[in-house]
């Protein structure tokens, strides 16, 4: 008997598709890498600053600019709380509007469109527009984060509402219940328990985002951080970064704790 050989069956059975994809990937990578314009001299020069930053991480400076840092973090936190609260309140009507089982088609399309736009753009892009409209400062930041929160929360809630059992809804309608009654008895029991978890989740995201929208003038710790980097004050920047990490970790722990208690 001749020797039997075995090779692992390929992931993509169609040989032409397999080779086509492989070639396409290789060509893309070659093009992408070759189109990179990197000033290697500048990179090499920067390595020293990189070492400076690494040193600064070990010896962060919390004191020299302690007032700016404290002020920036307070502003970030204030923006986070206000924007999450506004976002939650406004997300509920948008979610109801974006649930196909409750809303007529025009309202549904409008709300879904709003959600899509709100989710597609980075917070910082929205922040640019709000700064142009409202001027520099934390209010533009609050508006930005609230706008992003509405889309985020409304999408999650709308999915919950659409996934709910249609029978109780029909039962309420059959008894001649108004829209308000439908919402109160049919929708709220589904939405409310989810709301706390979603709010904690979004609180966390809003804090992280509040740390960057200051770069375009929308308030928060981002402005302080940006200044520190601009002046190459790595020890202050390192202090801010470490504080961000600590606060993010603490809020993750807290939200895990609260969600665990609520279950």
């Amino acid at each position: 008997m001749t020797a039997r050989t075995w090779r692992r069956p390929p992931l993509i059975a169609d040989a032409r598709l397999r080779w086509g994809l492989s070639v396409a990937v290789v060509v893309y990578l070659l093009l992408a890498v070759s189109s990179l314009e990197v000033n290697w001299q500048r990179v090499l020069d920067g390595l020293e600053r990189g070492a400076d930053f690494a040193r600064a991480l070990i010896t962060p400076d919390f004191t020299s600019r302690s007032e700016d840092i404290l002020d920036g973090f307070l502003e970030s936190l204030a923006m986070t709380f206000v924007s999450t609260a506004i976002g939650l309140l406004l997300a509920i009507p948008v979610a109801v509007g974006a649930a196909r089982n409750l809303s007529p088609l025009p309202v549904y399309l409008l709300c879904r469109g709003f959600i899509a736009v709100s989710r597609s753009f980075q917070e910082i892009i929205i922040a640019i527009l709000f700064v142009a409209m409202l001027g520099f400062g934390p209010l533009a930041g609050v508006a930005t984060l609230a706008f992003a929160s509405i889309g985020f929360i409304a999408k999650l809630l709308a999915e919950d509402i659409e996934a709910m059992d249609p029978r109780p809804l029909e039962a309420i309608r059959a008894t001649g219940g108004s829209l308000a009654k439908t919402l109160h008895w049919g929708v709220m029991p589904i939405v409310l328990p989810r709301l706390v978890g979603v709010a904690m989740y979004r609180l966390d995201i809003n804090f992280r985002e509040s740390a960057i929208i200051g770069i375009v003038g929308a308030g928060g710790i981002g402005a302080t951080l940006n200044t520190a980097f601009d002046r190459y004050e790595y020890d202050t920047a390192a202090a801010i970064l470490l504080l961000i990490i600590v606060i993010v970790l603490a809020s993750e722990y807290a939200s895990g704790f609260i969600r665990g208690r609520l279950r």
């Binding site: 390595l47 770069i215 970064l241």
Partner: peptide, 24 residues
């Protein structure tokens, strides 16, 4: 945890001051 907590824009802010602006 450190990587996750810091937004990519902040990483970019840091890297631009270290290795200079650009795609890298």
């Amino acid at each position: 945890v450190a990587s996750r907590s810091i937004n990519s824009l902040i990483w970019a802010l840091l890297l631009v001051t270290i290795i200079g602006p650009g795609v890298l």
